[in-house]
Amino acid sequence: MRVRFRIWRQDNARVKGGFRDYEVDGLNEDMSLLEALDHLNEQLVLRDEKVVAFEYDCREGICGQCGVFVNGRAHGPHANMTTCQLHLRSFADGDTITIEPWRAAAFPVIKDLIVDRSAFDRIIRQGGYISAKTGTAPEANAIPVGKEVADRAMDAAACIGCGACVATCKNSSAALFTAAKINHLNTLPQGKPEQHRRVSDMVQQMEEEGFGHCSFTGACEVECPEGISVANIAEMNARYLKAKLFG
């Protein structure tokens, strides 16, 4: 199988970048897209060129580190999938595959296809936790949590922090990411004591990082590898309002 890669190359954050085309041969449809990029990089090394910098780690769709814009979609042409789960069988022989880094003011490019997503960490830092020290926990079954509540918390908690929501959003809004964490913790009884502070502080941090507003286009839910519902954003808005009024 043969494809043409159109890849964004940019040496570092200070210089301008641009697209470069690479013809890659000798691929097969069972290879993942990232393996095809590995293959390209081996050829680049042998041609004495610098390799394309792109991110990955677990390559099984759970760590959230990989993530590029492939042919106009975050994580490629399928819904609810990570880039590492994308295989060449999703493309035709001879296709051009355009690969761009996530685009958002809050996610500056570090090199080629790698962006800096530390803004997410800073949002979590402002309250994406339950303040209980190690050693202070009560017996696990002391506080019953109904299955529906636990399931709802789990639905939100499933976020892997890949940033596809921000990448695909026309406003680069981080609302889905932030809402997922807030709802995960605020749904559970253990998270209730600091629920108002959590939502206020995390939303404030989200705004300070320079993400845009949520327009409820719903694109984020489609591109989210875990399919986290945009209803979470509405729920966060309700929680925020409540925190501001009664918090």
Binding site: G72, R103, A104, A106, N171, G212
Partner: peptide, 12 residues
Amino acid sequence: RAKPTPYAVNHH
């Protein structure tokens, strides 16, 4: 401002 650089290809 939050999205200063558009994608070259975007199939939203």
